[in-house]
């Protein structure tokens, strides 16, 4: 890719990642959440992969790391879901309404889900580019 795309991609990449994680972390307060946020983060990685080539993108995050992370995170999601459905009834979460810590259960699910979406989508993009 030419120099314009590379320069812009280099400049904009941190902000894409930041926006993605902002959306993930505010999923319980504003629209968005794990899937849109994770998709935005993955699109940041996809931008790097398109602009600089797949090798440079794999210096940021390797394919094997993504695979293992996805497996682990998926297990955490199922365990969190079990937690949500059984233990939650006995724990009253205290938090200010509309505050950042108002719903720790939803926040934790959003974060874990967001990471999973990020891993999965980045993995798909990487594998498709490699073909």
């Amino acid at each position: 890719m030419d120099v314009i795309i590379r320069t812009i991609a280099k400049g904009i990449f941190p902000f894409i990642i930041l926006l993605g994680f902002f959306i993930i972390f505010h999923g319980h307060l504003t629209p968005g959440g794990s899937f849109p946020g994770g998709a935005i983060v993955a699109s940041g990685f996809a931008l790097i992969a398109v602009a600089f080539g797949i090798k440079r993108a794999e210096m940021l995050v390797r394919e094997k790391t993504l695979r293992i992370m996805e497996g682990i995170v998926a297990m955490i999601i199922v365990i969190l879901l079990l937690y949500e459905s059984f233990i939650r009834e006995y724990i009253v979460s205290e938090g200010e309404m509309f505050g950042f810590w108002s719903a720790p259960e939803i926040l934790s699910l959003n974060v874990v889900g967001g990471i999973m979406v990020m891993c999965a989508l980045t993995l798909i993009v990487f594998l498709m580019i490699k073909e």
Binding site: F35, V117, L121, I124, L127, M128, E131
Partner: peptide, 19 residues
């Protein structure tokens, strides 16, 4: 939103099979 996620994975799988 749920259905979009499902759609995404089906499309990715179909495209890889097309490759």
């Amino acid at each position: 939103l749920t259905s979009i996620v499902i759609q995404l994975s089906v499309t990715a799988l179909a495209l890889s099979i097309a490759i």
